[in-house]
Amino acid sequence: MFTAIVLPLVLTVFPIPDSASGFLAEVPGGEQQVPGILDFLASLVAPNIIAAAAETAMLPLTIFFALFAIAITRLPEEQGERLLGFFHALANAMLMIIGWVLWVAPAGVLALAFGVGLRSGGGAFAALAHYILVVSAMGGFVLVLAYLVGWLLGGISPLRFAVALLPAQAVAVSTQSSLASLPAMLDSATRLGLRQTTSEFVLPLAVAIFRATSPAMNMAVALYVAALAGVEISPTLACAGIVVALIISVGSVSLPGSISFVVSIGPIALAMGVPIEPLALLVAVEMLPDIMRTLANVTMNVAVTSAVDRGNR
């Protein structure tokens, strides 16, 4: 919600450089059809899931598979295990295909960057720097919010919290992996005097399903591309994007940024009618915003752990 409200204001004060238009040279144009509220509610239920997948109707697909996953947990154990085994094998096969694609992806990104360079010249660097700063700023909000959570809900002074988190934050910046930062987070929790029973339960759970920056920064990328393409985002479309961003953040797995970037942001963009073609180029600079993602996630994970620990006391 913060991103949906603040990012358009940020782009008004600091507009996207004109050179960024080179990113959209291959994006097909066309007048956008903004659905009404009744049409939007009706679109949440897909009468034909296969047709919805063929039409890249990501919002009804996401809702369907979320409900389908819940339904699997209600099945008899044998049937549930059979279905889970099938989907685990399917996921592994898809990851293998993604690995093959990523093996040749640098050549594709180089070709895209070469085309953008021809159209925009050195201005492309300024456009990418603008994108990195704007998207990272949305993650910076989550980082600041983490210190407030640790202070107001965890009862830890910001200075003490900051000093104790430095080792974990250093690991987060160097590895860009919340999972790799988990031992350092546990150590920081000990430094803060949090109970071991709390930290050893909450922190691994947070690493698995709680990605605090994911909705904010993924929405930021989708809204940035929308502004770049001149797509007007109505409140209805923004709400659709927020819903998908939340579901994707909980359901996503810990993958390298080059994989999870398109997998996480593509459904959000499609739900809001935003072109996804620029994502193929923006993924090349995802490493820099990913530092902010991991840094804020690690900080928020420990902050939430402190809040849970204080509440249990």
Rank of each mutant, 00 (worst) to 15 (best):
A137I: 01
A137Q: 01
A137D: 04
M138L: 11
G139S: 05
G139I: 04
G139C: 06
G139Y: 05
G139H: 06
G140V: 02
G140H: 03
F141Y: 13
F141H: 04
V142N: 05
V142T: 08
V142A: 05
V142L: 07
L143S: 09
V144T: 11
V144P: 01
L145Y: 11
Y147Q: 07
L148V: 14
L148F: 13
V149P: 00
V149H: 06
G150L: 08
G150M: 09
G150W: 13
G150E: 06
L152K: 14
L152E: 10
L153S: 14
G154C: 10
G155C: 04
G155Q: 14
I156F: 05
I156Q: 07
I156V: 13
S157A: 15
S157V: 11
P158N: 12
P158Y: 11
L159F: 13
A162P: 04
A162T: 14
A162N: 11
A162S: 15
A162C: 08
V163Y: 10
A164Y: 08
L165N: 10
L165F: 00
L165T: 10
L166Q: 11
P167M: 14
P167N: 12
A168R: 09
A168T: 09
A168K: 09
A168C: 07
Q169I: 15
Q169W: 15
Q169L: 15
A170H: 01
A170Q: 03
V171I: 14
V171A: 07
V171W: 05
V171Y: 07
V173H: 10
S174W: 12
S174P: 00
T175Y: 04
Q176F: 13
S177M: 03
S177I: 02
S177T: 03
S178Y: 02
S178T: 12
A180Y: 01
S181F: 08
S181R: 03
S181H: 07
P183L: 02
A184D: 01
A184T: 04
M185D: 00
M185G: 01
M185R: 00
L186H: 00
L186W: 00
L186C: 02
L186G: 00
D187Y: 08
D187C: 02
A189L: 00
T190W: 10
T190D: 10
T190L: 08
R191F: 07
R191M: 09
R191V: 04
R191W: 05
L192V: 01
L194M: 11
L194V: 04
R195L: 02
R195S: 09
R195M: 05
R195G: 10
R195F: 02
Q196I: 11
Q196T: 12
Q196L: 14
T197S: 14
T197L: 09
T197Y: 13
T197Q: 13
T198E: 03
S199E: 01
S199P: 00
E200Y: 15
F201Y: 07
F201C: 12
V202M: 07
V202S: 06
L203E: 09
L203G: 05
P204M: 01
L205F: 13
A206R: 01
V207L: 02
V207Q: 06
V207D: 05
A208G: 00
I209G: 08
F210A: 14
F210N: 07
F210Y: 12
A212Y: 06
A212W: 09
